[in-house]
Simulated assay, not measured.
Amino acid sequence: MRRPVLTLLAIMLAGARLDAQPAAPPRTPPVFIDELTWMEIRDRLLAGTKTIIIGTAGQEQKGPHMVTGEHKYVLQHTTERIARTLGDALVAPIITYVPEGSWETPLRGHMAKAGTITLPEDRFIELLVHAAKSLRAGGFTTVILIGDSGGNQNGLKAAADQLNAAWKDTGGRALFIGDYYTKSSADIRTYLGSLGFPLETIGSHAGMVDTSELLFVNPSLVRRDRLAPNGGSPDSGVSGDPTKATAALGKALVQIKIDNALAQIRASRPTSGGF
């Protein structure tokens, strides 16, 4: 008779141990609309979330040590942080097809490297306008346009201008947040210079800036065994010294982008609540 009693006692004790486990923390609701159902998006709209962020990245070569989607992974981090800080914004899927040059020979710039995809400027602008109008039709009233690459900036501004002209007196508005890239690029150079890094070490593409940011947001996508000053060869596609990159630097550089974007958004929406 003792064995059934002991077995019952063991089961009760096991249940008590399970009951004593702390409850899992509640999952933070997603802000990317492709992680939400249409009804969840509708409910967020009804609750006052009327701003949508469209981020544009770039499918381009990033030297021998970084994946070609570097801009996308950085934007997934920064746009989520921006949306959560604003508190009334969601994020559209990152747009990775952007102007990168021409596929006509002779190939130049990023297009000379395998894996780069380009979109003509007019098609890029048209893509942005159609995406924004789609989201406006779904109930969003403010569309924020942010680009993580220099070649995106003119098209983003042109799209915002077109949208604002089309939406005049309708309650819709497009905001081109150029400070995310242009101001931040200057601020980042100043910051790194204050730490003693010369401009040739900082570089301008796939160097210590891009590499530091990716080391922070997704280090598994950096091929550490391929890190070399200027990519290790004249035709590497790298400007600068990615061997000086660190995740700690990346955290600071990404924060500069987020802070500049938030400041410009807030300045552009002075009457909005919650800021």
Rank of each mutant, 00 (worst) to 15 (best):
M1A: 12
L6P: 05
I11H: 03
A14M: 12
G15L: 13
G15I: 05
A16V: 01
L18W: 12
A20H: 04
A20G: 01
P25C: 05
T28H: 08
M39F: 03
R42W: 00
D43A: 09
L46R: 12
G48W: 08
K50T: 14
T51S: 07
I54W: 01
Q59T: 15
K72S: 05
K72N: 10
Q76N: 13
H77Q: 09
T79D: 09
I82V: 15
R84L: 06
V91Q: 07
A92H: 15
T96N: 14
Y97D: 09
G101V: 08
G101Y: 10
S102H: 13
G115E: 00
R123F: 15
F124Y: 15
E126R: 11
E126N: 13
L127K: 13
V129W: 04
H130I: 12
K133H: 11
S134G: 15
S134L: 10
S134M: 10
L135S: 02
G138T: 04
I146D: 01
N154V: 14
N164D: 14
A165I: 12
D169V: 09
G171S: 12
K183E: 14
I188K: 10
P198E: 07
P198R: 06
G207C: 06
D210H: 13
T211D: 05
L214Y: 05
S236D: 05
V238Q: 02
K257F: 04
L262G: 09
R266N: 09
R269P: 00
T271N: 13
